[in-house]
C-alpha cells in the first residue's frame, strides 16, 4: 500500500499534527515556567525529572485525574463545547505551515487565509465558554476576548497582507520562496514595521500577556476559564500554546524567510525561527505588565490600524515604483 493514498496520508498527517501539538504544549509549559523562573532569578521547576522536565507531565496527569465539574445553571452544551471548539481548529491551522514540502498533508494555495480565518474560531470558543459558565467573571472575560480579537485582527491581517503583496502569493511555501537566504532579503527586514505590527497583533490575538485581558487573573479570577476544572481548562491551555506556535510559525514564514537561511536551508531554519519567536513571546509575558482595556483598544485603533494602513499603502507605492523603474 502506497503512502500516496489521500486518506492514509490525511490520517497520518492528522496523527502527526496532534502528536506535535500535544508534545509542543508539554514542552512549552516547561519552557514557559523555566523562563519565568530565570527572568525572576529563581530556578523554576526543578524536582520532577532532570531539570524538572517531567513537571508538565505530572501537571497533565493531575489535570486528567481531576473531577469535571459543571457549574449549576450553566449551559451544558456551550460549557463543554467551548474547550473542544477551542482546540478543533488547531489541526487545520497546522496544515499549511511550511515544515517540509514533502510532509505537507494537504497543499493549499490559500494557506494564510485558512490559518487566519480558523484562528478566529478561538475567540468564539472563549465567548461560548464565558456565556455558558453562568459566572460574571467568565462573561466579562468573554466580552473582553471578543472586543480584543475583533480589534486586533485588523492590524494582523493588514500586516500579513503586506508580506503577501510583496510575495504575490497566499501560499506560505511560495511566500518563503520569494525571500532570499540572507537576513536583508527577508520581508521582515525590508519592511520592519509590518513585522512589528504582526508580532504585537499576534500576542494580542493569542491572548498572551501583556494583552491577557480575557484571563486577567488579578481582575477576573481566571476570566473565561474561571469555572473550568481538570481537562476543560487543560484543553484551553493546550490550544493556547498551539496557537502561539502557529502564529509564530506564520510570522517566521512571512517575515523571517522560513526555511531560507545563509547555510544549509531547510526546515530546521523554519523551526529555529519559529521557536525563537515563541521564546520572545514568552519573555515578553514575564517582562511587561498587563495593559488596561482602554489602553489596549487605543493601541489598536489609534496606533496600529492607521500604521498598518499607511504601511500597506507605502508598500504598494514602493512596489509600483520598483515595477515602473
Amino acid at each position: 500500500m502506497s503512502l500516496d493514498t489521500p486518506l492514509l496520508s490525511l490520517l497520518l498527517g492528522l496523527a502527526a499534527i496532534l502528536a506535535f501539538a500535544g508534545a509542543n504544549g508539554i514542552v512549552l509549559v516547561w519552557v514557559e515556567r523555566k523562563v519565568a523562573g530565570r527572568c525572576q532569578r529563581r530556578p523554576g521547576p526543578l524536582h520532577v525529572g532532570p531539570y524538572g522536565l517531567l513537571q508538565p507531565l505530572a501537571d497533565a496527569l493531575k489535570l486528567i485525574s481531576k473531577q469535571l465539574i459543571t457549574p449549576r445553571r450553566s449551559d451544558r452544551l456551550l460549557y463543554w463545547g467551548a474547550p473542544l471548539l477551542s482546540f478543533m481548529p488547531v489541526p487545520i491551522c497546522f496544515l499549511p505551515l511550511p515544515f517540509l514540502p514533502e510532509m505537507a498533508t494537504v497543499r493549499l494555495n490559500l494557506g494564510l487565509i485558512l490559518i487566519l480565518s480558523f484562528i478566529g474560531l478561538n475567540s468564539i470558543s472563549l465567548c461560548l465558554a464565558g456565556l455558558g459558565s453562568n459566572n460574571k467573571w467568565s462573561l466579562l472575560g468573554a466580552a473582553r476576548a471578543i472586543a480584543q480579537t475583533v480589534s486586533f485582527e485588523i492590524p494582523l491581517l493588514l500586516a500579513a497582507l503586506t508580506a503577501v503583496f510583496m510575495a504575490g502569493s497566499m501560499d506560505l511555501h511560495e511566500v518563503m520562496a520569494a525571500q532570499g537566504p540572507w537576513p536583508w532579503q527577508w520581508f521582515g527586514f525590508m519592511n520592519p514595521l509590518a513585522l512589528l505590527l504582526f508580532l504585537i497583533s499576534a500576542v494580542a490575538e493569542t491572548n498572551r500577556a501583556p494583552f491577557d485581558l480575557p484571563e486577567a487573573e488579578s481582575e477576573l479570577t481566571a476570566g473565561f476559564h474561571t469555572e473550568y476544572s481538570g481537562m476543560g481548562f487543560g484543553i484551553f491551555f493546550l490550544a493556547e500554546y498551539a496557537y502561539i506556535l502557529i502564529i509564530c510559525g506564520v510570522a517566521a514564514a512571512l517575515f523571517l524567510g522560513g526555511q531560507q537561511g545563509p547555510v544549509a536551508p531547510g526546515p530546521w531554519w523554519f523551526l529555529a525561527k519559529m521557536y525563537a519567536l515563541v521564546l520572545l513571546v514568552i519573555q515578553l509575558r514575564w517582562t511587561l505588565p498587563r495593559v488596561r482595556f482602554d489602553q489596549l483598544l487605543n493601541l489598536c485603533w489609534r496606533w496600529m490600524t492607521p500604521a498598518a494602513l499607511l504601511n500597506i499603502l507605502a508598500t504598494m507605492l514602493v512596489m509600483l515604483a520598483l515595477k515602473g523603474a
Binding site: R38, C39, R41, P43, W286, T287
Partner: peptide
C-alpha cells in the same frame, strides 16, 4: 519594551537569588 526585555534577559544569566 527593549529595555525591559534587556533586564529580564540579563536576569536569566544572573545568579539566582533564591
Amino acid at each position: 519594551i527593549a529595555v525591559g526585555l534587556g533586564i529580564t534577559g540579563r536576569a536569566v544569566f544572573q545568579e539566582q537569588s533564591t
